[in-house]
Amino acid sequence: MTQLADQRPIAAAQEAAVDPAVNSSSTTTSAAELEQLRRARPRGPHRRSPLAQVGVRLALALVAVVALAPVAFLVSLSVRSTDDVLTGSWLPGGFGELAWGNWSAAFRTIPLAHMLANSWLVALGSALVTAVVAVPGAYVTARAGKRGARLSAALLAGYCAPPVVAVLPLFFLLKEVGLTNSVVGLALVNGLANAPVAVWLLDSFVRRVPVELEEAAWLDGLSVAGGLRRIVLPLIAPGLVAALLVCTFLAYGEFLFAVSFAQTTASQPLTVGLSLFQGDRTVQFGQQAAAALVGVVPVYVLAVVAQRWLVGGLSQGALK
């Protein structure tokens, strides 16, 4: 192949790479669009040898096993006695000896139910705060030209800084306003901390709303903010759902702020409770696994149910 022939497809490929984003002025999730693109494309003659196909499948199966093994082991541990665990096997040793008691014991060893409630209050409260910050934020970054670009850069800087940088200053700030040891305090801090992520994901959704729609609304007498609320907001709803889901997961799993600002059991979320399990002298494998699963399972259910939105929001928001 000559050098020239080599370069033409590259240019075409680059154009095509931009294409899906340009074509899709609708606000359906890009996962659906990508799926359509994939299906619409004629099945090409990528002839791969059967051996290569088997190789690809084996490799992917291995990936799936690696992705699942740790959580599968938690499930196995959660129904085993310590003696059974110490055999070091992956699966429970004997039938009829399953130690279901681990699950109820986990709720007694730490105030699991209370901590779980705290985690969800922090997660949902912070998502609300994030939404209030990120919707106008993304509108500014997408529509306000240079001012938007500056805001975008400042938010990126805020996201890049390790959270530990803010821990000591925020500790004193929260103490000053009486929000240490408080679910409200954690929700506020997490909500603000996750705002850059949400703005970053939402920005491209706002950009894809045709300006003409807003212009028509302005002619009808709506203000810019009114247009944002009445025209833009409904159109970026799928992106907002995805961004808020991501931020909910981030706040739900947050640990550094929680362990620094919540010293009382009453205000601690589950992540802190699980880390306290570690401090015990004897490792309660089964209980610890059960407690971790109590925290993980709702997230998994939510992630699987909302997979379309998540994948769409992440891939569309991140690929600009």
């Binding site: 938690l74 799993g253 640990f255 699980l274 610890q288 997230v299 998994y300 992630a303 994948v311």
Partner: peptide
């Protein structure tokens, strides 16, 4: 497979730590 792959990503890091520490 995509769904399976999402799961490590949405697992809170503390739970990831607990699972691997036990493993």
């Amino acid at each position: 497979l995509g769904t399976l792959l999402l799961l490590p990503l949405v697992t809170p890091p503390v739970m990831v730590g607990v699972a691997w520490k036990l493993l």
